[in-house]
């Protein structure tokens, strides 16, 4: 239970909690030479703690841009993004980096594990950055690797792990500092169907254990596994089921 600092699983009839993410009428424009690309056009949404959301839509519809705003990686051109009550657009770079470290977990399509580090060391990396003591991070890393089913492979380097195993290590790494929000960008994009299904199960379990999960995906199965699916097109949300 200590793996994700479990919050009560909401279930369909749970009381509506305060949202962990609040996006209000967010716009994101990118200058492209003399033109401006409107990646997001007035997007509003809320993510509750323990929510499990899939954002789907065609390429270039603004999914990843929205994910970046929620991950405090980017700032809206207009509108507001609040994460755990804090205005992401008002954070300075150092502040945003620190915030990401402690409050948000990232899972990428291509894992991005450090090749020279073992699975356990990769998981320990964000904890080391957060100043967690050595013994504590080793214990926590083992616990997380057990959680994702890789307890026996903690000493293996990424090159000695399969794609699915690497992604599980990446998920364990994302959970290292007990984030309330896990953001995943095409987490099954590099995996075969069977391995992708394992990752979907892992996300489900994570979510049950109290972490809000937001995935951007083209994978219909991953989207179907989420409680809510947000559809986007041309920088706008076209359908969003109620929380």
């Amino acid at each position: 239970m200590t793996v994700t600092d479990t919050l009560p699983a909401p279930g369909p009839n749970a009381r509506k909690p305060e949202p962990i993410v609040r996006v209000r009428d967010a716009y994101r424009d990118y200058p492209m030479g003399k033109e401006t690309v409107h990646a997001l056009r007035g997007v509003s949404l809320e993510i509750a703690p323990c929510d499990n959301v899939a954002i789907v839509g065609p390429s270039g519809c603004g999914k990843s841009t929205l994910l970046n705003l929620m991950g405090v990686v980017d700032r809206p051109s207009r509108g507001q993004v609040l994460i755990e009550g804090r205005d992401a657009g008002a954070m300075r770079d150092r502040e945003a980096t620190e915030f990401r470290l402690r409050h948000i977990g990232f899972v990428f399509q291509r894992f991005y594990l450090m090749a020279m580090l073992t699975a356990r060391e990769n998981v320990e990396l964000p904890m080391a950055e957060a100043g967690v003591a050595s013994a504590e991070r080793a214990a926590r890393a083992r616990e997380l690797l057990d959680y994702v089913g890789l307890g026996a492979r903690e000493r293996h380097r990424p090159g000695e792990l399969s794609g699915g195993e690497q992604q599980r290590v990446a998920i364990a790494r994302a959970l290292a500092n007990r984030p309330a929000l896990l953001l995943a960008d095409e987490p099954t994009g590099e995996l075969d169907v069977r391995t992708g299904a394992e990752i979907i199960d892992l996300f489900r379990r994570l979510n049950r254990d109290g972490t809000a999960v937001v995935v951007v995906t083209h994978d219909a199965e991953l989207a179907a596994a989420a409680w809510r699916t947000i559809h986007m097109r041309d920088g706008q949300i076209v359908s969003q089921p109620a929380r």
């Binding site: 991950g71 990686v73 150092r94 980096t97 620190e98 915030f99 990401r100 470290l101 402690r102 948000i104 990232f106 990428f108 291509r110 991005y112 450090m114 990396l125 964000p126 950055e129 957060a130 790494r173 994302a174 500092n177």
Partner: peptide
């Protein structure tokens, strides 16, 4: 560069 980008997204500081 992508590994470094991933580290920065994860919250690893520039200094680190």
């Amino acid at each position: 560069r992508r590994d470094i980008a991933a580290l920065r997204l994860m919250g690893i500081s520039r200094r680190s």
